[in-house]
Design a protein around this nucleic acid. Structure first.
Lengths: 340, 340
DNA sequence: TTGTAGGCGTTATCAA
DNA sequence: TTGATAACGCCTACAA
């Protein structure tokens, strides 16, 4: 272990210029690949750069350029969800790929306390990032307000809270929920229930709305259990509640795969056969879906594409382009496995 | 959607000073909570700050201070693992809590391509972060080399690659693996196999070493299946291989819970009862462990504590303190559930 | 094609 | 206790 000797002293453009025997201006031009530099100079500079181990100081560069060439990915999830939600990882990877290719550094900022909220406010406003991708902001999110006030380049994954008119990319949760519910109905089930989660967020509320829509007049409110999160544990609680309220229930639409997995575990424990006695479907087509027993029928959501498109949206704004009003909707599809 | 009008113009210290009717120096002193400022001035400055909506420009501040008050969390995982590994989320949360309380911004940087490697090299060296926490770097990792060369404040979660003498916090994989294997043996199993993963990394290699140690003379090489990753799919492959090589196998130590879950799915499909016919144990005590059927006996690893301690290690170096040579080891424990 | 010099927004040193 | 003023390292007109 080192006795923490402090970082090595970094060399500056001036060092490079001195070694190369030319002016700082020319060094800078080489650095930025500008035209009007003699090959001779270019070669000398590159040599000198290697020699002194020069790396540009970002703070100085950002200061004068008034931009950072970085985009933040803000993650604002309740603890439990953050650990479970496989979509987040895919979204991150998708966004990173796009930003990376455009020469932007993606920096993920996680918001997990009041302290974080303030600090990140500074980070956004202080010029450390040029734009932001926001994942799952809750209602009345202060960060969302800030982003709107600053009119900074941004893109939400999922609908922005409080219907703020901000750029976003999302799936149509309502439509997708209606589709899979309809399929359940078409397969002959008659007592179809739902474990609805996170009703405080658009994704949660819309899935319930789609469920209602699809059922129409046969919708029975007592067959809906409302739970807090899109989590396994919530699935357990929701399934128990449903069974208690209606023991003869023969189908369940769980608001997410994790919820469905929780529900399955309850059914398994009490000996209900899936799908013979009761059908279960989920939402997300996450890694969970293929690993439950039986594997889940579910709605496939293009998670990494959501991240990628959100990144594109931010980049477009950074380029000063007009962007499509009303947000971007990506297609979902139904994946039918054995659980229904 | 806004026509991307560009961000609002930010106000500077000078604006605040003008409004408050005093000099920039005093404003700066108020901002940094320094002594020797009259109450009168302090009040006037705070009022002016609100009035003009001032937020410090980080680039300028970082430039003059020569530090960024930010710590990077570098995630360098193969795609699949990143999406599955529940430890990563806990580590992130643990580290963020500590850094946040110390007034540091944690920024996660994900390394997923060659492009990323170069860009992040600049990010590290260019003064955008003061220190780095590194999760799961592979052998001959260029970023690790850079960190060592720069002698920058750092902490690895898990052992640093190539035995580089860098600060780290880890569990004792070998010891923990030996313990759970011994327990398996003590429970009367006689044909104990292992699905060993990620042998190219210390965590993977050490778990196998511990397994060998515990078995001693009864160790049988043919009862070890080597797989690439700590993943569900690898567990499937490994279990199949083991069954083929030794159909009478009666216990399996899987190198991670995800691997164990994959193994369980194979056993279930072919109708072997767990734990009656064959015992299965995992490693991590991740969310997977409690959700398999039967729930997994496994090694509990204090993931969020690993993140927290890594953060402390970085902070200590940033304060210029000497740090404990030889790294920090955290305790593990065995959690015995129903799978063995 | 190259050099010069002003300025980006803060902090920090020194007088006052 | 406060106000000038010189850095911090880089980019970018402008002049040469």
């Amino acid at each position: 272990m080192t006795p923490s000797p402090g970082r090595k002293k970094r060399s500056t453009i001036l060092d490079v210029a001195t070694v190369a025997g030319i002016s700082r201006g020319t060094v800078s031009r080489v650095l930025n690949g500008e035209p009007y530099v003699s090959d001779e100079a270019r070669v000398a500079v590159n040599k000198a750069i290697k020699e002194v181990g020069y790396v540009p100081n970002m703070a100085a560069r950002n200061l004068v350029r008034q931009r950072s060439q970085a985009v933040g990915l803000l993650i604002h999830e309740p603890h439990a969800l953050f650990l479970e939600d496989p979509n987040i990882g895919s979204i991150m990877l998708g966004a990173n790929t796009v930003l990376s290719q455009a020469g932007y550094q993606m920096v993920c900022l996680i918001i997990d306390s009041e302290l974080d909220v303030n600090r990140i406010g500074q980070y956004l406003n202080g010029g450390s990032i040029d734009g932001a991708i926001v994942i799952s902001a809750g209602e009345n999110d202060p960060i969302t307000e800030l982003i709107e006030q600053l009119a900074m380049a941004s893109a939400f994954v999922g609908l922005p809270p409080n219907h703020r008119p901000l750029p976003f990319v999302s799936i149509d949760n309502k439509k997708a929920a209606a589709e899979i519910t309809a399929r359940l109905k078409a397969s002959g089930r008659t007592q179809i229930g739902m474990i609805a989660s996170a009703l405080g967020r658009a994704a949660g509320a819309d899935r319930l709305a789609g469920f209602e829509d699809a059922l129409g007049s046969s919708y029975r409110p007592e067959l809906v259990a409302m739970v807090e999160h899109f989590s396994f544990d919530a699935g357990i609680a929701g399934m128990r509640e449903l069974l208690e309220r209606c023991p003869t229930i023969d189908a369940v639409f769980a608001a997410s795969d994790a919820v469905a997995a929780g529900a399955l575990s309850v059914l398994q424990r009490i000996g209900r056969r899936v799908p013979e006695d009761i059908a279960v479907v989920g939402f997300d087509d996450s890694v969970w879906a293929q690993r439950t027993n039986p594997p889940l029928s579910t709605v496939r959501q293009p998670a990494s594409e959501l991240g990628a498109q959100a990144a594109e949206l931010v980049l477009a704004q950074l380029r000063g382009e007009e962007i499509n009003r009303g947000g971007v909707y990506l297609e979902t599809s139904i994946v039918w496995r054995d659980s229904a």
